[in-house]
Design a binder for these strands. Structure first.
Lengths: 331, 331
DNA sequence: CTGAAAGCGCTAACAG
DNA sequence: CTGTTAGCGCTTTCAG
């Protein structure tokens, strides 16, 4: 910048004014400065700037998700990026693999880089870093999962209602012997979905003794093996509610292997690509990850703009998509 | 940091030494400093540090891909992140939507943030920013697509050989009336795949007049419509080589709609989730995006560590996965 | 409209 | 083993 000022024959502050498009610069002075900038191929150093800038803003956001290559997470990522771009903000992304230790480390790494805000899918039972961030006035919004603490912003799918919808749909098609296949219940979304499952059973007067629940599933292989076991039992379920993406895939594989894909009904939580191309098409309760990401970053930017708002829990509705597998009756 | 030094009763430089784990600090001094750090919930400001640090390293990397929510790109992203984590480096990601203007802007945004290196899927015919980055000594590695300029690092799939393998596979199963469905040929990967297609035809002595080529396809809808047209023609193809992900999906939809999924062979370029669950399973030439991301970031870090290496073009092999659709004979 | 001076939080270089 | 000084590139403040 010094060099640009020298070449343009102006003071360093004038260069600063020009490049930041501040007012009070004569048009021809500005032109001379732009020319020098181009001639020297100069690029502003925002890092140095944020050192002195009021509020120390770095125009940077941190996004923490289960994994950047998970479709649900990467759609959130895209939404956050789109929103950030409108504000001239760049996005750091980090994968947590549902590991609380990794979460702490990743948050610390972002704190050291002085991000302006944090959007995150927490994996921890407790968010110790909240004191550091809150103390610094850094806005934090939780997505997909809610933290233990209550006075924070969060944007999550309506897991409980969605699961109830899925289960009620199966009941409406005549099923009673329904199996729930789900993740580790310490994960908040899994617990909510289980609650929704039982909500719908209760509303229909189906006793818990008639259904089967398998928990602690987290990948397709485990889920496939679990369902294979159920199918081989004396009283196999006539319908499955699979409470997560990968679990649904395992379910489909197990049904296919047993030749039962047209005789056992399936509704999955969370949509996935090609669900409609399978035979039968897979009925799902779809989430809206783009909307979740959008709402989360809009909230961050609202806080950054100085607006004082009460912490809020935003529930994003889910949508049942009927494709065939959920409309099969009990055999 | 000043405050930490005061609280611990040491000089500011000692705090710097402790937090950066530099040698030559007495154990009990270090302990006192750590305690103060914890008490004040202090987090180092890396931005300020990089201002003075030798080489001005920010421990930050920029990743530019078509879109962060594209599965191929997000697998690369994950690989880069894993590699970066080992080096204590954070990753900025940005989506380009194959828009050259957006590419320029995104690179400029990363330059302003002084990233240590850039990994990118270029969409531009020319990379004007290369002079800025190279001049600054910033390492750049291209992935998936190669730039116009030659003296740069790149890591790409062996598109030509992969396409030839796919085509030869169809020929081996008795097909001659094969259709190529592909993207805009100005995209370098599409052009390479078309070359591979003709390589295999040439090797088998099949004249170009026997095959059909449809280009400028970029989404599933367009591809579905295009194939519907071909199937309705007097001499429909007996086999399809679909040169890209979304195009393959359109192909599958068109075949399904026409009830031809068991009579027309298909090989797709690029694997996708659930390809094995469809009926018939979809034979593909799979790429290895994780490996591409790994190799690219390892090259960045090798350059950052000061190693001087010749710019190199790394070709990552593809792999044919037979699942059924590619093994159907001509009817 | 323009510029000079101070200082953001840190690390390099050097002195003790 | 420890502390002092200077200065990274910028923005703020204030004086012309």
């Amino acid at each position: 910048m010094k060099h640009v000022a020298a070449l343009a024959g102006v003071g360093i502050k004038t260069v600063s004014r020009v490049i930041n498009e501040e007012p009070n610069v004569a048009p021809d002075t500005a032109a001379r400065v732009w020319e020098a900038i181009r001639a020297l191929d100069y690029h502003l150093d925002m890092q140095a700037g944020s050192l002195r800038r009021a509020g120390g803003r770095t125009h940077t956001l941190g996004l923490l998700v289960s994994s950047v290559d998970n479709p649900f997470a990467s759609t959130i990522h895209r939404a956050v990026e789109d929103s950030a771009l409108e504000h001239g903000v760049a996005v750091f992304a980090s994968s947590l693999d549902d590991d609380p230790e990794r979460e702490d480390k990743a948050v610390a790494a972002f704190l050291r880089r002085r991000v302006d805000g944090l959007i995150l899918t927490t994996a921890s039972p407790a968010q110790n870093y909240l004191s550091s961030t809150a103390g610094r006035g850094m806005p934090v919004v939780f997505v997909d999962r809610e933290p233990a603490s209550t006075a924070v912003d969060s944007v999550v799918s309506d897991n409980r209602a969605g699961a109830a919808t899925a289960t009620a749909h199966l009941i409406r098609h005549g099923h009673r012997r329904i199996a729930l296949l789900t993740d580790r219940l310490r994960i908040q979304t899994a617990a909510e979905r289980q609650r929704g499952f039982f909500d719908a059973l209760g509303a229909a007067g189906i006793p818990a003794s008639e259904v089967q629940v398998v928990t602690d599933l987290y990948d397709a292989d485990g889920s496939e093996a679990a369902l294979a076991g159920l199918l081989a039992s004396p009283e196999p379920p006539t319908a499955i509610f699979s409470a997560q993406n990968l679990i649904t895939i395992g379910v489909l594989r197990a049904l296919r292997a047993a030749g039962r894909e047209r005789s056992v009904a399936v509704v999955g939580f969370d949509d996935f690509p090609l669900a409609g191309l399978l035979d039968p098409g897979v009925t799902v309760v779809a989430q809206d990850p783009y909307r979740i990401g959008r709402l989360a970053s809009e909230r961050i930017f609202r806080r950054l703009s100085g607006e004082v708002v009460e912490p809020e829990r935003v529930l994003v509705p889910t949508r049942l998509i009927e494709r065939g597998s959920g409309e099969l009756g009990p055999s």
